[in-house]
Amino acid sequence: MKLARTRPAKTAALALLGAVALTLTACGPGSVDDGGTTGGDDENTSEEGGAELSGTLAGSGASSQENAQNGWMAGFTEANPGVTVSYDPTGSGTGREQFLNGSVLFAGSDAAFDEEELGMASERCLDGEALELPLYISPIAVIYNLPGVEAEHINLTPQALAGIFAGEITTWNDPAIAEANPDIELPEITVVPVNRSDDSGTTENFTEYLSAVAGDVWTHGPIETWPIPGTVSGAQTSGMIDTVSSQEGAIGYADASRAGDLGTAAIGVGEEFVPYSAEAAAAIVDASPATEDATDKRLTIELARDTTESGTYPIVLISYLIACDTYENEADATNVAAYLSYIASPEGQDRAAEPDVAGSAPISEDLRTRVLAAIDSISAAS
């Protein structure tokens, strides 16, 4: 039987002097402003009149979100020192698993739940529904280590990129690469494709792109676990970066915020080659429809990977924040709603977009409105 709930906190995005202020009016778990502090008449109030949040809030999941999560946690706890927030970048698969078994209150995932996981999520959420909120949007950079190549970017067609990771292109001066780079003297050294060794949403997004644009070359389909044995690999995003950085000729894929000093490829889109940028990533997200099974709480997106539209970067990662619409107690419900609201706020999105944080693409106002409506459903079982 479905447990009765306390009334959820209500959210609204309000325009004020050209800026959007985030508010949650008081009901149930408690209201929060854009810093995450609660409002109302609770006797435990701050000098500004808002009740102070307290407790612990543990999350885990996508390592792609690590830099953004560090920024979000810092911003949120500046306003809410009574809440201890943690995020363990274990990888998307582990994060979803830990959320489903109740080890953490929220998760980050570069891939949406599958049908089996959705059934488990309902049980974990006390017969409620899981929220899947696309709050981290970032290009996946194709990174490489070629110290002797001074070009800002190496151009790679979809077919060439798929051929590299399928093991069909084995040297950097292969004609499939050289023809797209007539002004670059490419070395005759071995191409060393590097993949993630763990279950990775970044891998799934990357192979989804390869499958969509070069399915005749990349025949393994979209997959979270690398399907080719005997490859060079690294665990999580940090392992990928370290492996590519340590081996000349290596090429890999990682959240663009972690590319550092490595070379990055410009990807063939239509008649042009497009390097990654937050703007080019946002352009493809805005042009993509919702998935067929999306709901008002599960705001999952079907990326148009094979677009030829000018100025779009198609290897994009949409990483979801996953939470429950029903928690066992009001403290957990309030803290989760407050933290997610901060992440969705203009302040939270702008913080993650800073180049020295994550360089991600802020969500649109339309998406923010729908995200806040979903967060508004979070409540506590009575």
Rank of each mutant, 00 (worst) to 15 (best):
T6Y: 12
K10E: 08
D33F: 07
D34G: 03
T37R: 13
E48K: 01
E52Q: 11
A58W: 01
S60G: 10
N67M: 03
W72G: 14
E78F: 10
T84F: 03
V85P: 08
Y87L: 10
G91T: 14
G91K: 10
A121E: 13
D127R: 15
E129T: 12
L133N: 10
S138D: 05
S138Q: 05
Y144E: 03
N145Q: 03
P147T: 09
E152C: 02
Q159E: 11
G163D: 11
D174M: 00
D174H: 07
A176P: 03
I177C: 09
A180I: 08
V194Y: 05
V194P: 07
R196E: 07
R196T: 12
E204F: 07
E204P: 13
T207W: 11
E208F: 04
L210K: 06
L210V: 12
V213C: 07
A214L: 04
G215E: 05
T219K: 15
V232L: 11
S238V: 15
M240E: 04
S245D: 10
S246F: 08
A250N: 02
A254H: 04
A256R: 01
A256G: 06
E279M: 01
A290I: 01
A290V: 07
E292W: 05
R298H: 13
I301S: 08
E302M: 02
L303W: 12
T307H: 07
T307K: 15
T307F: 01
S310V: 10
N329A: 12
N329T: 07
V336P: 14
I343A: 05
S345P: 04
P346L: 05
E347V: 00
D350R: 02
A353E: 10
I363W: 06
L372G: 13
